[in-house]
Amino acid sequence: MNVIEVKNLCKTFKVKKKEKGLKGSFRSLWHPKYQKIEAVKNIEFTVEKGEMIAFIGPNGAGKSTTIKMLTGILYPDKGDISILGLDPRKARKKLAYEIGTVFGQKEQLWTHLTPYDNFKFFGAIYDIPEEAVERKIQELSTLFELEEFINTPVRNLSLGQRIRCEIVASLIHDPKILFLDEPTIGLDPVVKENIRALIKRMNKEYKTTIFLTSHDTSDIEKLCKRVVIINHGELVLDDSMENLKYHYLNKKIVEAKMKEKVNLEDEDGITILKDKGYNLKIEVDTSKKSVADALKLLNPDNIIDINISNIPLENIITEIYKKEEDK
């Protein structure tokens, strides 16, 4: 069952184009020039119930604009959006009861209040009876391990603790879909890992559909089974993580410590990344040469130590972005 359906979605912004310097400012006072920026162009996709989807793209690709149209913050110029059968333009309030949002760059909590008071406030916003809010706060504070600081004013919390509280605030009304826009921005690796584990647990326990945007490839790799890539406002890829890796991971990195030096310079399908005499790092294009053949060239008897790994997801995504730039 699809919980999100997007068809031919378009959004254009009119941006004032200013010439350089004070002179330019005066000129644009009397003869303003505008530039139309197509932030989102004919995007189409669907999301199934319970899915964890990564919606990614470089800066300015149109991710935030899309997520803002899906949550009713922005009005699209063209196209149809259906979130749980509701049109965000026409049924904003109804939709708000069904979705939760966390914008990593924009805090929704009152910083002078404690997380507990904030959660009570959010409970009132969603018209949840007192007892039910208390129960929910108890349940979520256990799941997100907030007990230690639930009565400390938000402004005194660390960034990681705040983000946990932001997520809990967005879950107080049991949303069916959670939109997470850069939830791990600015967090240290340990806290990031912690947040990811909590999001995963939440998806498992409540079957919440997760719509995630992030620049952190670890977020995407560890949380999502499906990736949608957007660039210059257009959808450039919509595939499962497995397929993405299968299609793009036709390259392996081989790092070897050798007894004797080996010359692989003219070998087809092999790119030398680093050659420090006895330490060699090569990239094997498996569509041209198998890893086994590459190892034969190195001569197994000549190898002291070896490590074979996939290309990091980050490199794959960068390659996809670059391909689109070159088109």
Binding site: Y75, E107, W110
Partner: peptide, 14 residues
């Protein structure tokens, strides 16, 4: 509100 363009400025509710 139909013309609202939001922004990506970082902000806090203080």
């Amino acid at each position: 509100l139909k013309r609202y363009s939001s922004s990506n400025l970082m902000s806090m509710r203080i």
